[in-house]
């Protein structure tokens, strides 16, 4: 079915050359995004989510120490290894990106309207100045900015963070892309603005059939937005599942751990909020076998020795030796432990 996919990433590997050798930051990540689909890439900080998003747009190959291999196919076209000149025809008009820090993503010394105009101008159409400014105003209005004529003339420091993110979305939409890579777009915003920005993204998907690769560590955001979930841990995608399945029965202990770590008010859950003990291992100190095993409550001896291969179970694709047990519900995890006093 790969023909139906808008974006197909296969065996994406990102490694970083250090003084002592190479460290794999992303290992053989493979996933697809279908037209009009919102796919959430979730995981803790340091698991390689952002790098994956940036690699899709070819943002890493200027870094001499970074090596990217594998295949990124967008709309039937292979993007990896393309020179900047060719990537430019993809960036903006086919794939666009918004960022975690919306203020830093805007140039502080250029007026907001000009930055939007720049993203529009690249389409190479020659238009009158007033028509361009009318188009910018329309676009800004489209992303929910009131009084766009005023905002256009302002500098980024004169407007709020939430509005900066809306501008960022406007810039991303200027080229009418098919895929939006949204790298933690709401992390830097406060909760009410978060909801507005997420609603805007969902709305754009509905209206334009925009596909979204939403990178987030916030399971609440993922639950709200996602059609499909990709769970990333230490540079590998350990679980891929339709959102409906994932939040009901995550098949990877890490995925389940992420869900359990979110406070809920709608279900009664006794004891302390569970956290996954420990932290994501550094790329250079990746544990042997399953990278998650030192933190895993249901590990077997096997887990330390052999890296589990991705296994398809129903709609879910899981890289875990205990995935079958997880799904049959024979394993209980952190919440079975006695509340720590």
């Amino acid at each position: 079915m790969p023909d139906e996919q808008l974006l197909s990433v296969r065996d994406l590997r990102i490694s970083y050359r250090t003084g002592t050798g190479e460290a794999d930051l992303v290992r053989a990540a493979s996933f697809d995004v279908a037209p009009g689909e919102i796919v959430c890439l979730v995981g803790e900080s340091g698991s390689g989510k952002t790098l994956t998003g940036r690699a899709i747009l070819g943002l890493l190959h200027h870094n001499d120490r970074m090596r990217v291999s594998g295949s990124v196919v967008f709309g039937g076209r292979e993007l990896t290894g393309l020179p900047d000149r060719s990537l430019r025809t993809v960036r903006g008009s086919q794939i666009a990106m918004i960022f975690q820090d919306p203020v830093a993503a805007l140039d502080p010394v250029v007026r907001v309207g000009e930055q939007v105009a720049e993203a529009m101008a690249r389409r190479g159409r020659r238009r009158g100045r007033s028509r361009v400014s009318g188009e910018i105003a329309d676009l800004l209005r489209r992303v929910g900015i009131t009084d766009p004529e005023l905002r256009m003339r302002q500098f980024p420091h004169e407007i709020s963070g939430g509005m900066c993110q809306r501008i960022g979305i406007a810039i991303a939409l200027a080229g009418d892309p098919g895929l939006l890579v949204a790298d933690e777009p709401t992390t830097a915003l406060d909760v009410t603005i978060q909801a507005q920005v997420l609603d805007l993204i969902a709305e754009l998907r509905r209206e334009r059939g925009l596909s979204v690769l939403l990178i987030t560590h916030d399971m609440g955001v993922a639950a709200r937005m996602a059609d499909r979930i990709l769970v990333m841990y230490a540079g590998s995608i350990v679980e891929e599942a339709p959102a409906a399945d994932f939040f009901v029965h995550a098949a990877h202990p890490y995925g389940l751990g992420l869900i359990r770590a979110v406070p809920r008010i709608d279900i009664d859950r006794p004891g302390r909020l569970s956290a996954i003990p420990g932290a994501v291992p550094e790329a250079r100190n990746r544990p042997p076998g399953c990278a998650f095993h030192p933190r895993c409550p249901v590990r077997l001896d096997l887990c330390a020795e052999e890296e589990p291969a991705p296994l398809r179970l129903g709609g879910q694709l899981v890289a875990c030796h205990r995935a079958a047990d997880m799904l049959t519900g024979r394993l209980s995890l952190w919440d079975s432990e006695a509340p720590v006093g």
Partner: peptide, 11 residues
């Protein structure tokens, strides 16, 4: 970041 942001929209 704004340089990356301009790059990804094809400037």
């Amino acid at each position: 970041l704004f340089v990356a942001a301009a790059t990804v929209v094809g400037v």
